[in-house]
């Protein structure tokens, strides 16, 4: 029953994982995204954070910033949560689940840097959070319009040629994912990058890039 439409651009379906009516699947494309998300989640789990070197102006003095253990644990937890949300999003076979995981990625992204008490970073995280929250409007809106016009959220049906998805819904989906951290809504993210804890901060970018790649596939296939 679960076979993707033949000209699926992500490649043929390889494996399906069903949790009741929630169906996830792997195609060569989503498997590649999945592998990448796993890779960087594992890196976030096993690697120690770097110690950022800062130069004190007006001399040759420099100092390194160490992350406190509690903060490290929190950041790492959030990074792993973010990795898991990304994993869920890239293999989801359901448009609404995809949007849910996407907004979860938005939350965890704020969480990764929120523990770092630096005014610039917190400011950036706040602005980023506002944008990410606003982005859920087109995101959920897109999914809702798809549901209303086609009566289904399953990618197996949406990817078929029988169902025409309105362009506005597609545009909303892309806009929503872009709001979670892609150009041109990513401006606050550049400041977030200043936060120490490279393996965790990196997950922020991994997640938004992978989500964008996935939404491109979804939108082109529909």
């Amino acid at each position: 029953m679960n076979s993707l439409a033949v000209p699926a651009i992500g490649g043929a379906e390889l494996h399906v994982i069903e949790f009741g009516d929630i169906v996830n699947y792997f195609s060569p494309y989503t498997a590649m995204l999945f592998a990448f998300a796993v890779l960087f989640t594992v890196i976030a789990i096993v690697s120690r954070p770097e110690r950022q070197v800062d130069i004190a102006f007006g001399g040759d003095a420099y100092y390194t910033k160490d992350i406190q253990p509690e903060q490290l644990k929190f950041q790492r937890f959030m990074a792993i949560a973010c990795g898991l949300a990304t994993l869920g999003a890239v293999v989801s076979g359901d448009v609404f689940n995809f949007t849910l995981f996407t907004s979860m990625v938005g939350i965890t992204n704020i969480g990764i840097v929120a523990a770092y008490k630096n005014r610039h970073v917190l400011n950036a995280a706040f602005q980023y959070g506002i944008v990410a929250m606003i982005a859920t409007v087109p995101l959920f809106g897109g999914a809702a319009i798809i549901l209303a016009t086609t009566g289904t959220l399953s990618m197996w049906e949406l990817f078929g040629s029988a169902i025409a998805v309105p362009l506005i819904a597609k545009a909303f989906l892309v806009l929503g994912v872009m709001g979670e951290g892609m150009a041109p809504f990513y401006v606050a993210k550049a400041e977030i990058t200043r936060a120490p804890g490279a393996p965790y901060v990196l997950i922020i970018h991994v997640s938004s890039l992978l989500l964008f790649l996935r939404v491109v596939e979804i939108v082109l296939s529909m």
Partner: peptide
């Protein structure tokens, strides 16, 4: 699929971030 190629090109961004951030 050139979609995968596109994916890899985007993932290169992660490499750039990682290179810069990992050293401190």
């Amino acid at each position: 699929s050139i979609l995968m190629l596109f994916g890899i090109y985007m993932l290169h961004k992660i490499v750039e971030h990682g290179l810069g951030l990992s050293s401190g």
